[in-house]
């Protein structure tokens, strides 16, 4: 069975030609149908870039240098634009990071949900509204009819995130990319949102690529995980294995830097600068090798 998502040896550079920074240096990962995979790494590790590359949301000055991104066996990068667009939002969906800026401020919630349903599922206006009501009920929004008539600024951040989650699952996608969807929320709302995502995943049978820097979140909901650093995959496997027996010193350092209830705060150790330094110089050495070719 082919993986829902298979990223192979992806290289992405950002910036002006000549001075471009390599943000992904041969990253690879697979997500199987129905799998929940955590994609972790510190800021700048390239985890968000990987998610954006799948969605075609790379910044204007970013270039995919090589590699493939296969969705259900078809390469998204080689696909004609209209075909890719018909997959985005319908088969591949996004739960964005910041619920405060991710909804259009001048359009009613109902209009924003139904335009997507009408675009991808060719529903009539009435059908789309009906379906939007169901979706809001599914994400546990009370009085969905009333909320459909509200503007984003009239509902809370947690509620907006629910609306965005409802929109992600609206067309029964087989892959949902969650780009740090809990980072901008406070802790109590975070938990509800995670439960909600898990429930919807089960109901709609989607696979999820959960991009986060929060190992706690990964431990809670992801069966498998990928650790990214400096644009490369350092570790990949069952979450339990990776967290209990981290093979790479960087993963160990990340774990040591995570606050936990069962140990005092003094025990927190930042990732040693020397380790980050050595990883980066290793990355650059491999880049030079790749350019020069094997000796």
């Amino acid at each position: 069975m082919t993986a829902v998502l298979a990223v192979q040896d992806l290289h992405v550079a950002i910036g002006p030609r000549g001075k471009a920074a390599n943000v992904l240096r041969g990253a690879s990962l697979e997500v199987q149908a129905g799998e929940v995979r955590g994609l972790v790494g510190e800021s700048g590790a390239g985890k968000s870039m990987l998610g954006r590359a799948v969605l075609g949301l790379l910044p204007a000055n970013a270039v995919v240098q090589s590699g493939t991104i296969q969705f259900e066996g078809r390469d998204l990068l080689a696909m004609p634009e209209p075909e890719r667009r018909s997959l985005l939002g319908r088969r591949i969906a996004l739960i964005p990071q910041d619920p405060m800026t991710s909804l259009n401020p001048v359009k009613r919630v109902g209009a924003q949900i139904s335009i997507m349903l009408r675009h991808h599922l060719a529903l009539s206006k009435r059908e789309a509204l009906e379906r939007a009501t169901e979706l809001l009920t599914e994400v546990a929004i009370r009085e969905p009819r009333r909320v459909l008539d509200l503007y984003p600024h009239e509902i809370s951040g947690g509620m907006r995130q629910r609306v965005l989650i409802a929109m992600a699952f609206a067309c029964d996608p087989s892959l949902v990319i969650a780009d740090e969807p809990t980072t901008a929320l406070d802790v109590t709302v975070q938990r509800q949102v995670l439960q909600l995502v898990e429930r919807l995943r089960q109901r709609h049978g989607a696979a999820i690529l959960f991009v986060t820097h929060d190992l706690g979140v990964v431990a809670k909901i992801c069966r498998t995980m990928t650790v990214l650093h400096a644009g490369r995959v350092l570790e990949d496997g069952e979450t339990a294995d990776v967290l209990v027996k981290p093979r790479h010193p960087y993963t160990r350092a990340l774990l040591a830097a995570t606050p936990r209830a069962d140990r005092p705060a003094e025990a927190l150790r930042p990732v040693p600068p020397a380790l980050i330094e050595s990883l980066w110089s290793e990355a650059h050495r491999l880049d030079r090798l790749a350019v020069a070719g094997p000796a």
């Binding site: 985005l88 969906a93 259009n104």
Partner: peptide
């Protein structure tokens, strides 16, 4: 963000400019 996300939902750029961006 809302305009960028519209791209990830499969809308074409002219449609996004007209329907999402212009009213703002």
């Amino acid at each position: 963000d809302y305009a960028q996300i519209a791209r990830a939902r499969g809308f074409s750029r002219p449609a996004i400019l007209l329907r999402e961006v212009f009213p703002n």
